[in-house]
């Protein structure tokens, strides 16, 4: 591809009727990565994506997509699956894919043949010539996804791609996303389902209330929270005084607590020196879900302060 950044946005602002939906979002998406835009409902994810794609213009800020300041100039190299799925019900599935490809510059005939191949590969070979109105919602959603891929874009933008899909189709979609990155494309997707983000994202941004609250890798996000430990002493009597102050007694005589900044070793040393012994110990890194809740929750607390 050659672009070091597939996409760059600085200070994007968009207001609707006096309400700021997006309030100065910055994003830098490196090429050939799976990049997640995470945020709760109404955070401004879809508006941000629409501005990045040139569907709407920002009130303020700049964006550069695949080296072009006007996203439409790179239009033929972009694939997009909107949050609100839309296909012509009277079109045949293969035609719908070819049509979406043709909008992006792919010849109809090539779009038709590629569409049929892609549907075959995605397990939809039996409905290639079915009209969209006869497909299930999940099938139609996959057809639309294939339509956004048929011209082999350099940048694939998926807005809440997993919503409405059953677990089987969710897994299919995850495979497609990985395959696109392996092909060399950059995948940018929005979601509020952390499990998908944790499995898929090379990097991610968390947006809340129209602002970017975090940017980094999944590990970076998880590292924003301290690790949690679960200690089971041989003699629990009086051990709580030796543990960090937030330690709470859990079932089975164990204690849950946050690993202090100096690490778990000093805690273990105090417990063993106190003669309580250690029957079991587990240390867990926080999940992306925990990090997300913490970042977004912190944002809410700041708002109410």
């Amino acid at each position: 591809m050659g672009d070091r950044l597939a996409l760059h946005a600085a200070g994007l602002v968009k207001s609707f009727g006096g309400r700021r939906a997006v309030d100065g979002v910055d994003l830098s998406v490196p090429s050939n990565m799976i990049y997640g835009v995470l945020g709760p409902n109404g955070a401004g994810k879809t508006t941000t994506l629409r501005m990045l794609l040139g569907i709407i213009d920002p009130d303020q800020g700049d964006r550069t997509v695949l080296g072009c300041q006007q996203p439409r100039d790179a239009g033929d190299r972009i694939g997009y699956l909107p949050e609100e799925r839309g296909l012509y019900p009277a079109m045949k599935a293969r035609e719908a894919i070819a049509f979406m490809g043709a909008l992006r510059g792919l010849p109809w005939q090539l779009g038709r043949s590629r569409g049929a191949e892609m549907m075959e590969a995605a397990g939809l070979g039996h409905v290639v010539d079915e009209k969209i109105r006869k497909l299930s919602k999940g099938m139609a959603q996959l057809v639309q996804l294939l339509g956004s891929l048929v011209h082999q874009p350099d940048l694939l933008v998926l807005d809440e791609p997993f919503s409405g899909l059953d677990p089987v189709n969710q897994e299919r979609l995850e495979k497609i996303v990985f395959a696109e990155r392996d092909r060399g494309a950059t995948v940018l997707f929005s979601t509020h389902v952390m499990a998908h983000a944790q499995r898929l994202c090379d990097r991610l941004a968390i947006i809340n209330r129209g602002r970017r609250r975090f940017e980094g890798t999944v590990d970076d996000a998880r590292s924003t929270l301290p690790m949690r430990a679960h200690l089971v002493p041989r003699d629990p009597d009086g051990v709580q005084t030796l543990l960090p102050p937030d330690a709470v007694e859990a079932a089975g005589g164990g204690f849950d607590f946050t690993v202090p900044p100096e690490g778990i070793e000093p805690v273990l040393a105090r417990v063993i020196e106190g003669g309580h012994g250690v029957a079991g110990l587990s240390v867990e890194r926080p999940s992306l879900h925990d990090a997300f809740v913490s970042i977004v929750g912190q944002d809410g607390r700041e708002m109410h302060r």
Binding site: G54, G75, G86, L103, R104
Partner: peptide, 17 residues
């Protein structure tokens, strides 16, 4: 009416002017 009803307009708007 058809594009709006089927939400196709966003696909069109994203792909072409």
């Amino acid at each position: 009416a058809e594009e709006r009803g089927n939400k196709v307009i966003e696909v069109l708007a994203a792909a072409v002017p």
